[in-house]
Computed example of a mutant assay.
Amino acid sequence: MTTPQQYQAPSADDFLMGGGGAPTAKFPTGVYGTTVSGRVTERPTVEQQRDIKSGDKKFWSDGNPMMQLVVTVQTDQRDPAIEDDDGRRRLFVKGQMKNAIADAVRAAGARGLEVGGTLAVKYTHDGTASGVGMSPPKQYVAHYTTAAANALHTPDPGAVAAPQQYTAPPAPAPQQYAPAPVPAPAPQYAPAAAAAAPAEQLANPAVAALVAQQQAQAAATPPLSPPPF
């Protein structure tokens, strides 16, 4: 049975098809850390709050209606007590939850909630009661990811990653070995040959005899050994 707090005027599609809207997201009192998150499935709407006991519409002391934002998100929650539960949940955004979500939207660089964006709301603790007999207000933190950011980070389900091709490292080039240099043969030192005298000097018997004597001495002298260096 729908409680007065859960009441929301049905959308055109829900009215046509007979649907009553998604169940309300629950944040049990004292169960800190409870989180409701999912992608926004339809455009958020604004409606007037209702008294939880009487179901009457609520107004501020100045006569203005007390409004709230209704956001439907696709969660992974499934309640066996709900027939054909598809996981959609409605968030009734007001009070401190409204401030937390507004901060999250600003941090994401967005101007508001949009279909396809992801909203996460976490119940962190209880605040201070505003008066005697009043329940302490629940405190929340929120995070929002824009629809554009979701589209960029969602892989194409039909895309298949190409297998990586293995490339063998190039084989090292064979080393070239040069033959060791062959030392040049040591120079051989031969006795200096007697200076040949000009033909006109050999015609002189004295010069011819001197040259013959020098050649004889050169022939008798053993060859010189090469120097030790």
Rank of each mutant, 00 (worst) to 15 (best):
T2F: 07
P4I: 10
Q5D: 09
Q5I: 13
Y7V: 06
P10L: 01
P10V: 01
S11P: 09
A12T: 07
F15R: 15
G18C: 10
G19P: 10
G20T: 09
P23N: 03
A25M: 03
A25I: 08
G33K: 02
G38T: 10
G38I: 10
T41F: 07
P44A: 04
D51R: 00
S54Q: 06
D56R: 09
K57Q: 06
N64T: 15
P65Y: 08
V70M: 04
T72R: 00
Q74S: 05
T75M: 01
I82D: 00
I82T: 10
D85Y: 09
G87W: 10
G87K: 01
G87P: 02
R90D: 11
G95N: 05
N99D: 13
N99P: 04
G116V: 14
V121A: 08
Y123R: 04
S130F: 11
G131H: 11
G133W: 00
M134N: 11
S135A: 12
P136V: 03
Y140H: 04
A142P: 01
T146I: 02
A148S: 13
D156R: 08
A162P: 04
Q164V: 14
P170C: 02
A171H: 02
Q176D: 11
P187A: 13
P187W: 04
P198N: 13
P198Y: 06
Q201V: 12
L202I: 08
N204C: 05
A206C: 02
A206H: 04
V207E: 12
V211Q: 13
Q215P: 09
Q217T: 03
A219S: 09
S225P: 12
P227Q: 15
